[in-house]
C-alpha cells in the first residue's frame, strides 16, 4: 500500500444551540497515494474544511479513523502533525517575527534536526526568492510575500503530506495563480497534497484526482476526465452539479 493518507468511515458531529445535531462529515472513506494531488471539491459547508482539520488533528473525529503517513490522528497526533504541513486561508503568521525567524521557528517546533535548520531555511529563502525580505517583519510584508512565507513555513520541516484548505480564498487573481503554481510544483516534487476548493477550474488545473464532497459525504472520486465521462458531461462543473443534484433526488 502506498497510501499516505487513509480515511475510513470518518464522522464528525457538531451540536448547535439552534440547529441541533449537525453531521458535518458523515462517513467519509478516502485514500490519497504518495505524490498525488487530491482535490476535495464541494460547496461551502460541504464538509471539506472539517475533514482537513481532522487530518491536521486540530479537530477530533466523532468516529472513524484517519491515518497520516501511517499515524492515527487520534492516537498519535504529534507524530501525525510532524508528518504534515497544514495551510489554510485562515492560518496566519506571527506578525512580529521576521520571515527568517518564522521559518526557523516552524522548522524547530516540528522537530527538524537542529543542526540542519539554518541550511534548510537558507535553501528555502533562496529557492522561493525571499532573500529580499527575509529579515523583514511579517507585518511589513505585502500579501504576495506573506503567501510565500506561509507556503515556506508549511513545507520547511519537509513533511510527506501537505494539506491546503481553500488556499486561494481572499487572494487576488495574480496571487491565486502563483499559489496554484506552487501547489502544483509541490505535487510534482513528490509531496502528497490534499487540496480543498469550491472553484472547479482550480481543481481541474492542478489535481490528479478529485473527490466530490457534499453534505458530509463523498459523492464520487476520480480524475477530472473520468468524472466527466462517467456523468456524460462536457465539463467538470456540469459533472459536479449532476453528481451533487443527482445524489439529492
Amino acid at each position: 500500500m502506498d497510501a499516505t493518507v487513509e480515511i475510513r468511515r470518518l464522522v464528525k458531529v457538531y451540536h448547535d444551540d439552534t440547529r441541533g445535531e449537525i453531521r458535518a462529515v458523515d462517513g467519509i472513506d478516502l485514500e490519497v497515494r504518495r505524490g498525488e494531488v487530491m482535490g476535495l471539491l464541494g460547496v461551502n459547508g460541504a464538509g471539506k474544511t472539517t475533514t482537513l482539520r481532522i487530518l491536521a488533528t486540530i479537530l477530533s473525529p466523532t468516529s472513524g479513523t484517519a491515518l497520516v503517513m501511517g499515524h492515527d490522528v487520534t492516537a498519535e497526533p504529534e507524530e501525525a502533525r510532524r508528518s504534515l504541513g497544514y495551510y489554510s486561508s485562515t492560518t496566519a503568521l506571527y506578525p512580529r517575527l521576521t520571515a527568517r525567524e518564522t521559518l526557523e521557528f516552524f522548522a524547530r517546533i516540528n522537530g527538524y534536526p537542529p543542526g540542519l535548520v539554518r541550511r534548510r531555511v537558507d535553501e528555502l529563502i533562496e529557492g522561493m526568492g525571499m532573500s529580499r525580505f527575509a529579515g523583514s517583519r511579517v507585518e511589513k510584508l505585502s500579501q504576495g510575500m506573506k503567501q510565500k512565507v506561509s507556503i515556506a513555513r508549511t513545507i520547511v520541516h519537509e513533511p510527506g503530506v501537505l494539506i491546503f484548505d481553500e488556499p486561494t480564498a481572499w487572494l487576488d487573481v495574480l496571487n491565486a495563480h502563483d499559489m496554484l503554481e506552487m501547489i502544483r510544483d509541490l505535487g510534482r516534487s513528490g509531496h502528497t497534497v490534499v487540496f480543498s476548493t469550491h472553484i472547479m477550474s482550480e481543481a481541474q488545473k492542478i489535481c490528479d484526482r478529485i473527490a466530490i464532497i457534499h453534505s458530509g459525504r463523498i459523492k464520487a472520486v476520480g480524475t477530472p476526465e473520468s468524472l466527466m465521462s462517467s456523468t456524460g458531461t462536457p465539463s467538470l462543473e456540469e459533472a459536479f452539479v449532476r453528481l451533487v443534484r443527482g445524489g439529492e433526488v
Binding site: 488533528t57 486540530i58 507524530e79 502533525r81 504534515l84 497544514y86 503568521l93 516552524f106 516540528n110 522537530g111
Partner: peptide, 9 residues
C-alpha cells in the same frame, strides 16, 4: 495564528 500553532507537532 492559533490554528497555525495547533497544526505544529
Amino acid at each position: 495564528t492559533l490554528e497555525t500553532l495547533l497544526s505544529t507537532s
